[in-house]
């Protein structure tokens, strides 16, 4: 479902181009669970952002679900964010002013679901993630692990085909991390959601079925 062909990404630092990604070519099939690993600054987040259509590559071709997405209009890209792509962040990035319930509901609002559809979908997720009792709390009232659960619930609320997760367990201790990884595994196996995660932990990488190693913007073979 994802095909990267000779992707380059650079920043203009002064007069020189600083390459963050060089000649990255990559295929990810539907239903895969891929882990991206590499040292800090090797371009993992950048790659994930390009995959998730948050940034554009400077060179190369990107086919998402067979469609060239190198130059998309804002509207088309937003369509994909609403329907096909979910994001999970290391810093959770919940909206502080919204309750747990409202955070999960937000993507559904953007998707244009009516109120009863939204209600049932949010209820289903709250139940599934075992956070019904916390639905009226604000993010600041939750622990890190709980916040990340809400982050994942929000990411899958719109039934995306793929979830991009940037160090989802980076801020959590190991018990919480395990819970999150189990959850990803379940989503991948039972609901056939494609998952691409960035991780520093070899252990977490074992939950997936493939590892891509990056160094200085190059894929290591």
């Amino acid at each position: 479902m994802i095909q990267l062909k000779k992707i380059y990404k650079y920043y203009n630092t002064g007069s020189k181009k600083a390459y963050v990604l060089s000649d990255v070519s990559l295929d990810i099939a539907e239903g895969e669970f891929v882990s991206i690993m590499g040292p800090s600054g090797s371009g993992k987040s950048t790659l994930l952002h390009i995959l998730g259509l948050l940034e554009e590559a400077n060179e190369g071709e990107y086919l998402f679900l067979g469609e060239n997405v190198s130059k998309l209009t804002e509207k088309k890209r937003t369509e994909l964010h609403r329907n096909q792509i979910g994001f999970v962040f290391q810093a959770y990035h919940l909206i502080d002013e919204l309750t747990v319930y409202e955070n999960i509901e937000t993507p559904l609002l953007y998707k244009g679901l009516n109120s009863s559809e939204r209600k049932s979908r949010v209820a289903e997720l709250l139940d599934k993630f075992n956070i019904v009792g916390r639905k009226d709390l604000f993010p600041s009232q939750l622990s890190g692990g709980q916040q990340q659960l809400v982050g994942i619930a929000r990411a899958i609320a719109g039934n995306p085909k793929v979830i991009f997760a940037d160090e989802p367990t980076g801020n959590l201790h190991s018990d919480q991390a395990t819970e999150i990884m189990e959850l990803f595994k379940k989503l991948n196996e039972q609901e056939k959601v494609t998952i691409v995660q960035v991780t520093h932990s070899e252990h977490n990488a074992t939950y997936g079925n493939r590892v891509i190693r990056l160094k200085d913007g190059l894929i290591q073979r």
Partner: peptide, 16 residues
């Protein structure tokens, strides 16, 4: 700003 970034990721349009 962070809120806006998150909302964009969740599929919000600029006009929204």
């Amino acid at each position: 700003m962070r809120e806006i970034g998150v909302r964009k990721v969740l599929g919000g349009l600029r006009i929204q």
